[in-house]
């Protein structure tokens, strides 16, 4: 099978079958916290896609070509969190200075991305599981797009849940979590999608 096909398959499986939020549990905090309005969830999702992609491109070479030959692979978590945090600050700085319109829509979510498990989780698993660079990139791309899709879909459902007639105790987060469970069950049905290939 050509590399291109595996790349696409890896993206799809990271995006849907093994969804970052619903089966790997990264980034639940923003998934629950920032999904009340479709617009804000879209902003958060796009910011996460960008940061994950760049962080993958920086962290993988950093680990493979520098930390590992130097004999200090255990410094990975420290290095990654420094990379991610400075990346977030630099992007924020750039947006704040040159693009007020972007700042208006993304500005509030940028500082939250540092403490978003999805970014560190993806970068860490990329090197923990010994992926090649192209696979790491596919994993990052698939994961982040999966996050974007799920958080937008979820926020659409949540806006409708607001007006739905739910029991009083379930109002707000509990019913949202049950909804997420049903979504997770739906995605479980996709497991083994590529079993025949």
């Amino acid at each position: 099978m050509s590399d291109f096909v595996t790349f696409i398959l890896a993206i799809i499986s990271a995006m849907l079958i093994d969804n970052v939020v619903l089966s790997r549990f990264y980034g639940i905090c923003p998934f629950l916290g920032v999904s009340k309005k479709v617009k804000s969830s879209l902003g958060m999702g796009i910011a996460v896609v960008f940061v994950i992609l760049v962080a993958t491109c920086v962290c993988w070479p950093l680990y493979t070509y520098i930390l590992e030959p130097a004999g200090i692979p255990f410094m990975d978590t420290v290095a990654y969190i420094l990379v991610i945090a400075s990346l977030v600050q630099l992007v924020g700085l750039f947006i704040k200075k040159y693009s007020p319109s972007l700042y208006k829509s993304l500005g509030i979510y940028l500082p939250l991305i540092t403490t978003n498990c999805a970014v560190l989780g993806v970068v860490q698993t990329n090197t923990d599981t010994g992926l090649r660079f192209i696979d790491a990139l596919a994993n990052g791309l698939g994961t982040s797009i999966g996050f974007l899709v799920i958080i937008v879909v979820f926020s659409c459902i949540r806006t409708r849940l607001e007006s739905a007639n739910t029991p009083k105790a379930f109002k707000g987060l509990p019913i949202a979590l049950i909804t997420a469970a049903i979504m997770a069950i739906a995605l479980m049905g996709l497991q083994g999608l590529f079993a025949g290939i």
């Binding site: 619903l22 089966s23 549990f25 029991p167 009083k168 105790a169 379930f170 109002k171 707000g172 987060l173 509990p174 019913i175 949202a176 979590l177 049950i178 997420a180 469970a181 049903i182 997770a184 069950i185 479980m188």
Partner: peptide, 19 residues
């Protein structure tokens, strides 16, 4: 034991607390 169960249990615990 699956991911979905985690969401259900967490949601129900929160619902009981809210109740």
């Amino acid at each position: 034991q699956n991911p979905a169960g985690a969401f259900i249990v967490f949601g129900l615990i929160l619902a009981v607390m809210a109740f």
